[in-house]
Structure formats: structure tokens, C-alpha cells
């Protein structure tokens, strides 16, 4: 099981849970698993073509998947963090 951290505004889809456990060996599989458990979450996270929306940063452990293999990044023991792209100011 992989622990996925859900950003606050999306928690109404996860029954207010901040961290959820799902099965999956890659970010792609994890998103599918999230959608099964919490219908509607995928369309918030992904474009129609299945790619991750540009306003979402996905981290496997401490690493942004943009610097790894994108949506096909493998996930083993690490936590997955979904973080809205908000920084600086």
C-alpha cells in the first residue's frame, strides 16, 4: 500500500481524509486506484488525455515526478504527495 497525501481542497472527495492508502506501482496506477476509491478525483488531477494537470505537482518521496519519469514514475515504499503548484509570491 502507498500513502497518498491529499491537498485540503480535495478532501471532500476522500471523506475528509488527509492521507489515503491505495495500491499501485506507478503514479499512473495510483491515480487509477484513487479514482476507483474516490470517484471524481482523477478529473481534478489529470487532463482529458490522462497527463497530470500543470497546476499540480506530484512528489514521490521528496522528488517531483517531472524530474523522474513523469506519470510512469515507479513508486515503492515512498509516500506520494499531491501539491497544488503554489510557491513564492
Amino acid at each position: 500500500m502507498v500513502k497518498v497525501h491529499i491537498p485540503t481542497p480535495l478532501r471532500r472527495l476522500t471523506g475528509d481524509k488527509a492521507i489515503v492508502d491505495v495500491n499501485g506501482k506507478s503514479i499512473r496506477e495510483i491515480i487509477e486506484a484513487l479514482e476507483k476509491a474516490f470517484p471524481g478525483i482523477k478529473k481534478r488531477l489529470c487532463e482529458e488525455d490522462g497527463s497530470i494537470r500543470k497546476f499540480i505537482n506530484v512528489y514521490v518521496g521528496e522528488e517531483d515526478i517531472r524530474f523522474l519519469d513523469g506519470i510512469d514514475t515507479e513508486v515503492r515504499q515512498e509516500d506520494v504527495n499531491l501539491v497544488p503548484a503554489i510557491a513564492g509570491g
Binding site: P7, P9, L10, R12, R44, L45, R53, F55, I56, P84, I86
Partner: peptide, 18 residues
Amino acid sequence: KEQGSILVNICYDMCMGP
């Protein structure tokens, strides 16, 4: 109604944009 507060930072219902 949907978030319990007006202090929301992203387009949570659609594209997650600012």
C-alpha cells in the same frame, strides 16, 4: 458550503488552477 471557508486557494472543482 463546499469547503467550510472562503479561504480556498485553488480551483478545486475543475482544473486546480489559481
